[in-house]
Amino acid sequence: MKDYHLLIVEDDISVGNMLQEALEIEGYEVARAYSGTETLMFLEKKKPDLILLDLMLPGLSGDELITHLDGVPTIVTSARSDLDSKIEILKKGACDYVTKPFVISELLARIEAHLRLVSERKGATISVEDDVIRAGKIALDTSLMTVIIGDKETNLTRTEAAILSILMRNAGRPLGRNTILDRISEETPDCTERSLKQHVSNIRKKLQQLDDIDHIETIYGIGFQFNES
């Protein structure tokens, strides 16, 4: 049995039933939600390893919901096929986008691929204790706004610390620019989409000065990804 818990967010009962049956045959543990609001209530109690998300939901739509999924890998399944919609959803934080109608074998393959990344992340040395976030040999103190790698240390601005915190908590996973901005909006209301790129560039340079490694990867058309090494 695959030791993964998946959440299907789909208001079309027949589609949801088909997905659940296919996933359970593969050995996944499956839960269901039928609206955006129900999904948020579910996530307060349990965090799945991956979410399959339809966009056309009653109440809180999938477009609105996706920025509130707290780093859970999310594959969007939608009848929208235009490129602009796909790009916008990926920028908001989805890890993949599958257009309906889809071939179930392809969707299962995509799910398996993304869950491999989840497994790698679980095995990664990421920890959060009090105000200190650790990823491998890198430690970020969010209260002092400092980064330590080995015996070297550098200071960050408040905005840089907030951005790096989000990236490190999601190490190894691409984050869209809008996702980053949404999650740091309360701490750094002055950070904009235009200035985000410069802030990330500043963080990258400061980290490189400590161990001569580029820890932040630019994912074209999506955003940024933090890598331990």
Rank of each mutant, 00 (worst) to 15 (best):
I222W: 04
L83N: 15
F102N: 11
E106C: 06
R177C: 10
P101V: 05
A22W: 03
A109D: 15
I89K: 04
I87N: 03
T154Y: 07
H68R: 15
D84V: 12
R116V: 11
A135Y: 00
A94S: 04
V118M: 05
D214E: 15
D54R: 05
E21Q: 12
I203V: 11
C191D: 02
A33Y: 00
A22D: 08
R32W: 07
T39H: 07
I163M: 11
Y28M: 07
S35F: 00
A162N: 09
K91D: 15
K2L: 06
G223C: 07
L167F: 05
S127R: 14
L164Q: 02
L55M: 10
R158V: 11
S14W: 10
A139Y: 10
K137E: 15
G150D: 14
D96L: 03
T142P: 06
H215P: 07
I104R: 07
K122W: 05
R194K: 15
T67A: 12
I163K: 01
V103K: 13
E186C: 11
M1L: 12
M145H: 12
K86S: 06
A22T: 10
I126N: 03
S85F: 08
R194M: 14
G136E: 10
T74P: 04
N227Q: 14
D54T: 05
D212R: 13
E160M: 09
A139T: 13
E193Y: 07
E187G: 12
T218K: 12
I8P: 00
M56F: 11
I149M: 09
I89R: 04
S14H: 14
T179D: 11
F226Q: 03
E38P: 04
Q208V: 08
L23W: 05
K137A: 13
I149D: 04
L7A: 04
I138C: 09
L140I: 02
L57P: 01
Y28A: 06
I8T: 02
R116E: 14
I219L: 04
H199T: 07
V72T: 13
P48D: 07
K92R: 14
L7P: 00
L167D: 03
I222Y: 09
L43D: 03
L164F: 03
A94C: 01
D130F: 06
T146K: 13
F42V: 05
K205I: 08
E38D: 14
Y220F: 10
L52A: 05
T179I: 06
A113F: 08
V132G: 06
D182L: 03
T146F: 06
I8C: 02
S201Y: 11
G221V: 02
Q225W: 08
E153G: 13
C95D: 01
V72F: 00
R32L: 10
L52E: 10
I163N: 02
I104S: 08
D70N: 14
I66N: 01
D212E: 15
I126C: 06
L65T: 02
L7Q: 01
A94M: 00
S201K: 13
T146D: 13
